[in-house]
Amino acid sequence: MLLVHCPYCDETLPELEFTYGGEAHIARPENPADKTDDEWRDFLFIRTNVKGPHFERWRHAHGCGRFFNAVRDTVSDRFLTTYKADAPRPDLAVLLADASMKEPSK
């Protein structure tokens, strides 16, 4: 079971309290009517499906109820960071450099 840091509660808590919310930073278009069929299809269904660091949404469903964003490595299942929903998308290069500093290895 993962431990997840809720950026609103500022607590690291068991995964049981959280629900997954799909890929992050996919904004619903302001005026959907202006979008072509292909653009709307991409908004609805097309996801990056990365192997590696993935920007994704979580909700502290059994806690404060807030949606927030996270970067999680889909290979190691390790969180690189979590951040509030309105915070800017973090720089992946900085995150990875920071993570390699912290990672235990021998």
Binding site: A27, R59, F67, A85
Partner: peptide, 8 residues
């Protein structure tokens, strides 16, 4: 509803 309200 919370999703749309909080994030959109």
């Amino acid at each position: 509803m919370e999703d749309y309200l909080q994030t959109e």
